[in-house]
Simulated assay, not measured.
Amino acid sequence: MTIYKSEAGARLLRERYLEALKAWPHDELRIPTPEGETFVVAAGPAEASPLVLLHGSGSNSAEWAHRFPALIEHFRVYAVDIIGEPGLSAETRPPLTTDRYAGWLDAVLDHVGAARAAFLTSSFGGWLALDYATRRPERVAALALRCPIGLGPMKKGFVVKAVLLALLGERGRRRSVAGVLGEPESSPIVAQQLLVSANYRYRTGPFPVFGDAALSGLTMPVYAVAGAEDAMVDSATTKRRLEAAGATVDLVPGTGHYIPGAADLEFLTRAAANGDFTA
């Protein structure tokens, strides 16, 4: 089954994405992997330390457009369209309980010649980076996680509320998305997510939760930031479990699942300066 609700919807989301890509200078890579072709947006000095960006669910690398100017001053940036998401990569969705996503990221890093890389991630991208870091710690120089999932059960209340609000039609769906993101209903971010949800089939089923033994194997520097008012993720549990594994975690008061700001850049540049990127 395709990840899109219709071919017209798929075409609309691709056109919007391609239009967004025109707004910022970059190279475009189409990388063969065991899971199908993977689209990567690359920019920054070729000799700089590699930084991999992994967006959230229901998104693509345009999510990082506003971050590129600052990031490419310090890193060779590779924004990866996650497979099975509404970007330009293959629609493949391997089971999350397997090591196939790790093999996929191996192929991406091998293609760009990065023996090790740091990762900057959002939400589901954080789950993928944590999965990779627990399976391939030698290839991960540092982890900067924004509202990561997989560290505790997802909150159930937001699902019930979303279903009830959906009964109110477009207005209810807008309120639901705004509530999850912690953004005003008039936000363009809310509008984009509404467009995606109208045309794209999100992943279903629970995301596996990482055990303490897996988290104890995170030998690289780890920084995470999460919204204290996240309606979808238990941020207090995220903070407690990551700090127990040696990470630094900031909870942002009055903030939901969408986190503005860029405190993670200081963490990443410090990790690079300390030699954590050395192979």
Rank of each mutant, 00 (worst) to 15 (best):
L21N: 05
A129W: 02
H26K: 05
L242D: 14
V159M: 14
A271S: 12
L88F: 02
S49T: 04
P206G: 03
A273W: 08
G275D: 03
E91V: 06
S57Q: 13
L268P: 03
G217K: 14
S123A: 13
A273S: 14
P137L: 08
A262T: 12
Y132K: 05
V112K: 02
F210A: 04
A43H: 07
A214C: 04
M232G: 00
A23I: 03
C147I: 01
I259R: 03
L71G: 05
V159Y: 14
P208E: 06
R241G: 11
V41Q: 13
Y78L: 06
H111S: 12
A10N: 07
S176Q: 09
Y17F: 15
G256T: 06
A62I: 09
A107I: 05
P25A: 04
P208S: 03
A279L: 06
K239F: 12
V52Y: 00
A262G: 15
E35L: 15
E73A: 13
L128R: 05
A8W: 00
L194S: 13
S197W: 00
T238S: 11
E35A: 15
L215H: 06
V222R: 05
H66C: 00
A79D: 09
Y132V: 07
L13Y: 10
L51H: 00
P95N: 06
A43P: 07
E35V: 11
W104D: 09
R175L: 14
K22C: 08
K22L: 12
D131Y: 01
A90S: 15
A8Q: 12
